[in-house]
Structure formats: structure tokens, C-alpha cells
Design a protein around this nucleic acid. Structure first.
Lengths: 340, 340
DNA sequence: CTGAAAGCGCTTACAG
DNA sequence: CTGAAAGCGCTTACAG
């Protein structure tokens, strides 16, 4: 049904080898005439090389898999820039990006999951951040498939954003502006046994900056999380307390939005009377909130570079890479209105 | 380097054919003994079938490509649920999802882009929403690669969310609650020559509901867009005008957030004194905003189903599919405080 | 300058 | 119940 080298060979009267060489621009000195004839024929028949046939004898597939949790997608956070980073990093070297999801049943059951069972990938980028199934690590290790982990803490073979550094920098920025009463907000859960380390790390980053400045930390949260419908009221409460914070650092957009809403309806002027910095994937356009941007694109690029290094030298374990955040809409960090 | 059928054949003393049949569970009645021996050996050697070798003689690759714009990523909006929908739809039939990006240069240059040049995909899901390069359509047509378009208006072979219906439903909901002065906000641009039809469609949906109710429409926008830093003030202005709207429908989160902030700092109680409905991919947790959720996951599922139908019957052109939005956080649509 | 042939790893009629 | 062989589409020494 589709055109093959053989078809072109028959049509032109040359051998398959000659056709192959011409179409691959092999130096094997072939006459201009022959070359032109063959190329013309290939164009006319709309010849397209069969990628599998090439892969089979190259022993390489030029595919890298991105592995996600099918069972619980929150375990495999996948912001768009992360995908683009991975793709762009792979594309530089002509590698293809294949998406794969895996269920917990597949991981616990007897059957080896398809990704590990078939030979179709040169490497695997694993995007599981917490509650990593036991068998995942062992499969990743045993399978012989070079692999790299995203956004999970390990000694080697992985990449993640610098949540700790981001928390510290945000806080330092506010300190430098003269703020003394800086709070840290997390309305989703406590910090003791979070699902993901970012929850602890961002807070610890904040704390380290406060400690270094000799100031008391003020963590505002509920052990069980603040229900969505109560968040604005919750923020109003701490904003109306005596010695309210003049600035806050928040875990994510949810806390930041609730807090600026609370501030606005309490009659506070933003950002003058309250500076808010949050972590997020994107700046929140139009809102008086500064944002520590999580560097997903760079994380993806780095993961792609790392998996390629591992494909070349599977025995080497590249050191873990941590990528810094950058502050956007920093104009919403301003000095406190009155010094204390 | 990696284990092949041949290796197992040699080790066990059986022929390659026998080994192949056993490992593929072919009915070809093979004795239990033989079967067990072969399976054991395969396990021991960690045999994994070579996917390319299979593809080559199946003539199928079981890969579907998702094509994005490399040059301008906004032309290829890719929210996470869309990817998951496509993946899940393909996975049901054992098909793999390959990501591909293409630059405008590749599309204009002489060289045929790799996706179209090599034979490695069974089908293509094209995710270009506007400023679609001339050559894209022609390549998609000529290449013989079955293809389906996402989120772009066509007669056949595509899927998109129902922006018009969403706008109409949001407005009808507010009308049914007793609102009469309902505005439509778009702070990004005018409706005359938008980049993407959703900008016109959402507005037209709103308008059609207002017209049907015999009410005047109130579109609030600036032809050139409202700069991010001015949005809250802009919203304050129309909220403090006489006969201000009691409810608003907004194109996207940006307008909705600016408007609730404006309302809060103007001392309005939400949602009682102002109902806000926006379009978005997700509910905005904790904010007094109802959301028309864009059905990306379903769009993805549908696109996957459609491309598979086209792979089976390339000559058929399945009718275009439009998928409805659903309202979340609808508790923030409430009747107006005083009847007018 | 070009052809005939082996081989990549697999599947599948064809024999026996 | 199992083997020998052809073939999928390609690349690459090996000859000449």
C-alpha cells in the first residue's frame, strides 16, 4: 500500500542499495544522473521512509517516554511548559517524545507494564511525585531502561524546582524592603506529612530567611486545611488582628487570591498596605500579587538533557539538579506603609 | 545486546517460530511442556519484544501524533486535561501518543517536515487554532496521513468546546434567576477580528440569550484590550456607574478576578450584590465566581475516537463534534438583591 | 560507479 | 505438535 525503496528500485531500474544511498545522501559516489532520476521518482511516488525499519537495524528507537500516573493524576503534575521543555530538549537531538500512563494495578499486578515489557523506548522520564508505588523503583532499576525522575527528591538522576530557595528569596526580598511582620500561608494542609515536599520546602525557605533576620516566623494554616469556601473569611480574620502581617508569602495561588480578596474587602490598599508573594506557574495578570515562577520549562529541558546523557552512558548517575525560581510582577512587593 | 527471539530459540532448542507463538499466546497448539520451558527462559533472560520489528510487518505503528506549533505556542493551546483525554482515548485501543511540534519555517520551507516525511504515525491530531500556515492544510490533505483538527472551525474532522452554547447557558442561568442588567466582559480585545473564534462565540452566545429575553446587551471591552494593570480600576468604573450590572459573564479568569477584586474593594457583597460567571478550565476554588468549565478532557477523548475511525476508514470524513461546557461553583450565581 | 546479499527482529503461511 | 523459509522495509559491508 505504501511506497517502499523496492518500488523505486523497480521503477528506476537501479538496485535497492543505490536508491537507499541516494535518498540518505550517503557519500558513496553515485552519478548525478542516477541520483536525480531516483530523487525525482521518490518525489513523484511520495516516498516516505519507514521509521520502524530504520529503528530495527539501528537498534535505537529514538523515543523517550514520559511516564505519568493513570490512577491519580495529581501524582504526576504536568504543567504545559514542562512538556514543552522536555520536547524541545529531546528534539534538539532528533528524539521523539512518547506519552505513557500507568495504573497502580499494572504496577502491583503480575504482568509487567507495557512500557517496561516492550522494547520501544530508549529512555524514560518518570513523573511521579509522591506515593510512588514500590514496584516502580524496582522496575525502573531492573528494566535496564535509562530513567530520570521529575520533581521528587533523590540523590541522583533527577530534576526539580528549588522550592526552598524560592521561599527564602521571596522572604528576603520582603525583608530587604523593610517588612518585619511577614506571614507564611498554606490553606491546604499542615507541614508535617505533606504529600509533596514542596509544601515543607517553601515553608522552610521562608522560615530560614526569618530566622536569619532574627525575626519570629508566623505560619498560618490549619492542620486539616482550610475549606475553599472559608478561605476569604480566614484571611480576613488574620488581616484584622492586631499586629497583622504587612506582607505574606503563600504556598499557591489559592491562598494569594483569597488573601487579596480579603484585603480588598477589608478596605486595605494593595500593595501598599499588604505585599503578597505566591508560588505559581504563571504570573497572575492584573492582580496585585508577586509571583515566584516555578521553572517548569527549564526543568523539562534539563530532564531531556539528563536522559540523553544516561542513554549514552547508562552506567553513570548524573547528580541531581535543582533549578531556581524567578520572581515576576515584583512591583507588588513594596515597603510597608509605616515602619514598626 | 538485547535479548531476541533467536536467543531464546537457541537456549531452549526450539525454533524461532515456536518461541514466537508461545510468547504471543497463539492458539497454534503447542505442548504445555514446550510452552513452559520457553516462557521460563524468556523470563529469565528478561526478553522484551522489539516493537519496531512488530510494527514493520504489521504495517501499523500504533502511533498517533499530536501536532503543535513550535513557533508560537499560543496557537496550540494545550491544557493538561486535553492531553489526558487524547491519551486515554488512544490507550483504549493500544495506540501510543507521540508529541510533535513544527515550526513555521519548516512549514514554509522546501523540506517536508519530519512528521510528514517519515512513516511513523498512523494518524495526526492537529492542534493549531489560528493563523494556520497555508501549507499545513495542504500537507495534511496530501500526505495521506489521516488527521483530525482540534479547536478550530471546520465542516468535518474536528472537535471543539461549545463556546457559543456556554455563553448562552451562563446568561440564561442569570436571566432565570431574575437578573436583567447583565454585562459581558472581555478585557483582552474586541470581537471584530479575534485570533480565536471563542472570543466571538462566547460573546454571541451571551448576546443571543439577551436578545431572546428582549433585553439590551452590554458588552464591556476596549478594542485594543485593557492593560493588565488597569483591569481592576476598569471594573471599578463600570461597577460604580448608575444602573450598574447585577451580573457579569466574562471571557476568562482575568476579567473575573479583576471584577471580584473591584467589587470587593468597592464594598459590594459577593455574590449577593454581583454574580460573576466566567469561562475557565477549572473552578477557581475559594473565589466567588461561577465557572463554565471547558470540556477539554472530553474534547481529547472525542478527538482520539475520531482519529481512530479515520485510520480505519480514511476516505470517510466524520462530522464535526461540538462538546458542551458545564457549570461549576454555580452557587455563586444568585438572584439579584433587589428587583428592578 | 553500482549490484547481489546478508541481516536487523519479528510473524506467518506452508509443510510435515 | 513443531521446523524451515519467506518476507516486512531498510542499511551496510562486500564485490566487482
Amino acid at each position: 500500500m505504501s511506497v517502499t525503496l523496492n518500488d523505486i528500485a523497480e521503477r528506476t531500474g537501479f538496485s535497492v542499495r543505490t536508491v537507499s544511498c541516494v535518498l540518505n545522501n550517503k557519500k558513496d559516489r553515485i552519478s548525478e544522473q542516477t541520483s536525480e532520476k531516483i530523487k525525482a521518482c521518490a518525489r513523484r511516488l511520495r516516498y516516505r521512509p519507514n521509521a520502524s525499519a530504520r529503528a530495527i537495524q539501528a537498534g535505537r528507537f529514538n523515543h523517550v517516554g514520559l511516564l505519568l500516573s493513570q490512577t491519580e493524576s495529581s501524582r504526576s503534575y504536568l504543567p504545559t511548559p514542562l512538556i514543552h521543555g522536555i520536547y524541545d530538549g529531546l528534539a534538539e537531538n532528533g528524539q521523539n517524545l512518547l506519552l505513557t500512563k500507568i495504573t497502580d494495578e499494572e504496577l502491583s499486578g503480575g504482568e509487567t507494564p507495557r512500557v517496561f515489557r516492550e522494547l520501544m523506548l530508549d529512555g524514560l522520564i518518570i513523573n511521579f511525585h509522591f506515593r510512588i508505588p514500590q514496584r516502580m523503583e524496582s522496575l525502573a532499576g531492573r528494566s535496564g531502561l535509562p530513567n530520570v525522575w521529575l520533581n521528587v527528591k533523590r540523590e541522583t538522576d533527577g530534576v526539580r524546582p528549588d522550592d526552598f530557595g524560592g521561599g527564602r528569596e521571596a522572604t528576603e526580598r520582603l525583608l530587604n524592603l523593610g517588612h518585619r511582620r511577614i506571614a507564611y500561608l498554606d490553606y491546604i494542609s499542615g507541614f508535617d506529612s505533606p504529600e509533596h515536599f514542596s509544601r515543607t520546602d517553601r515553608y522552610e525557605g521562608y522560615k530560614s530567611a526569618m530566622v536569619a533576620a532574627g525575626l519570629p516566623e508566623r505560619a498560618i494554616y490549619c492542620e486539616k486545611g482550610v475549606p475553599a469556601e472559608d478561605r476569604i473569611e480566614f484571611s480576613k480574620a488574620f488581616l484584622s488582628a492586631e499586629h497583622r502581617p504587612t506582607a505574606v508569602v503563600t504556598y499557591s495561588e489559592g491562598e494569594a487570591l483569597a488573601t487579596v480578596m480579603a484585603a480588598a474587602s477589608s478596605g486595605l490598599k494593595l500593595p501598599d498596605e499588604l505585599s503578597v508573594v505566591t508560588f505559581s506557574n504563571d504570573a497572575i495578570k492584573g492582580m496585585p500579587i508577586a509571583t515566584m515562577i516555578l521553572p517548569w520549562y527549564q526543568v523539562g529541558l534539563q530532564a531531556a538533557a539528563m536522559i540523553q546523557a544516561k542513554i549514552r552512558q547508562p552506567e553513570k548517575n548524573p547528580p541531581y539538579v535543582v533549578i531556581p525560581c524567578t520572581l515576576e510582577q515584583s512591583e507588588f512587593c513594596v515597603p510597608p506603609t509605616s515602619a514598626f
